[in-house]
Design a protein around this nucleic acid. Sequence first.
RNA 1: GCGCUCGUAGCUCAACGGAUAGAGCGUCGGACUUCGAAUCCGCAGGUUACAGGUUCGAGUCCUGUCGGGCGCGCCA
Length: 600
Amino acid sequence: MLTKLKLEWKECIENALKKISALDDIPPLAMAEPPKSELGDVAFPLFSYSKSLRKAPQKIAEDVKAYLLENGHPEGEIILAGAYFNVKLSIENTFKPLYDSVKALGDDYGKNDSLGGKKIMLEFSCPNTNKPLHLGHMRNDSIGESISNILKANGAEVLKVNLINNRGVHICKSMLAYREFGGSETPESTGEKGDHFVGRYYVKFATWAKEWDKKISEAEESGNAELAEELKASHPDLRAQKMLKEWEDGKEDVIDLWNTMNKWTLDGIGESYKNMGISFDKIYYESETYKYGRSEVLKGLEDGVFYRAEDGAVKIDLDEIGLDTKVLLRKDGTTIYITQDIGTAIRRHDDYPFDSLIYVVGSEQAYHFKVLFYILKKLGYKWADELHHLSYGMVNLPEGKMKSREGTVVDADDLLAELENLAKSEIIEKGREALVDDVDKTAHSIALSALNYYLLQVTPSRDMIFDPKKSISFNGNTGPYLEYMGARISSILKKAEEAGLKEECVDPSLLKEDAEKELIKLIAEYPEAVEKAAKDFDPSVIAQHLYSISKTFSSYYHDYQIINAETKEIAKTRLALSSLVLQCLKNGFKLIGVEYLKSM
RNA sequence: GCGCUCGUAGCUCAACGGAUAGAGCGUCGGACUUCGAAUCCGCAGGUUACAGGUUCGAGUCCUGUCGGGCGCGCCA
């Protein structure tokens, strides 16, 4: 509604410019947001016309105004500010249609069809089966889940896929350590979550290997060369390599152990996913996909896309994109990481003929994806142009990088539990137990919302710093703040109902306060935010918009009474406005992993 | 060394090439007999790392310098 009005003005001013200049072809008019509401609701900078019209932009603005006053213009008040032609729209007049629209659409308000009919495959998470999830995974998962919801809200059909990294020498390490030190212990027997249990053995392997190194150097220092050699030959690292070979050969006891431990980890990770509201439509396992790429590469070799180097390895020349060469098959014919990804992408397109495939993967793999996409394009796949690497930055701690060796890795389960405790004590401290139906459930919701909001409010591509102690406060620009606004509005609406007041769009001109106009504007602009978030693959667009709405509303209901407004008519209309704000918040919450609570 | 990326308030983050660079946290000071104070209001805090350039206009684009981060494996 508002957008339509703005566009009407734009067209009208463009016409006026043509008439004034007597030129048919003028550059398109730019549209901007005035910095302050006193300066209007939409701004049209006229600088760029001063050359072709050979007039000062201020003069152009005056001429346009004069022309429009004489020849008519859309609804609104013209405000000239230097070279800016601004318009103050009669916002309150847009309230009625906005109200009807939001009420009719309900939970669908904000959805659009900008990606209508598009099939999009979205890959994210991709955990290893040798350790539990940490903070870095959480950013990945939050972004993945949020982007999925955002794309769907824009009309796309989304298939969320996960690729479980369950093979390789690193997986064998935890297996080996378990076989060496585990005895008969199981997650059941120790009461540990499976992923933490396995992760413990992965850490154990590292210390074991380190001790082994120490033993070797001790033997060398004491001149016992024979012992040193013996130790080297049975080094844990070598044994892990050997185990990988056995795994690939299908040695039964290794496969059994692998199955057992993978299940432990995946059960544990699955529990974390459930706890964090993460889900997938399809799961791929690297133990299967790692075989895919070879035949594709050989086909490419036949077609002359790749070449065989002197030593027998298959390579591609990346000179065209300013890079070196890249090996795709080792000289012994085995595949490497990128070979698998080539095969997997092709296989996926067969499984689900996507229009677009988005990989949510850390920025450190930007090079890998650049090469991967180039290769797929070279192989002649048209859809290679629609592959995207949604690159996100690292999550660092105030002290610097998370380092497993120094034990500074923030565990996902621990962090969530910690936040839940914080939320719970907050509820109890404030004496809100009676207000909420289920304290634990509410605490969980608040914790999760806090975490998701914190991770999503930062533009994905940027590195971010996460202070587990300080950063997750429940005050200020946070998930709980948004939840609180939702709860407050919900509470007001309930109170109104009890008082026999029903929301009604009685007379929009009753909404004459600045804050009210601002709210109408923000609600009207919400669908644009949904569209922009999808276009930019950026959930923070939604987060920012919802924060603006919440902050404006919060300030508004402190300054103005809603239920006890001067007249019943004003009260009803303000209730109508409040209910739109709530609907808008609820719809946006779903896109960024914040839960709506009626009370908290 | 080469490539990518970032440098904005004490801290964490914003800002389609547009007007006086904004929020939150923290500091200080106010507001609960009033629809829920996980709230609100106010003060202070900036030569947007630096130097040039393009433009009517640059935090944003270009070049260079300095400083972070990440890549540059026949690891994944």
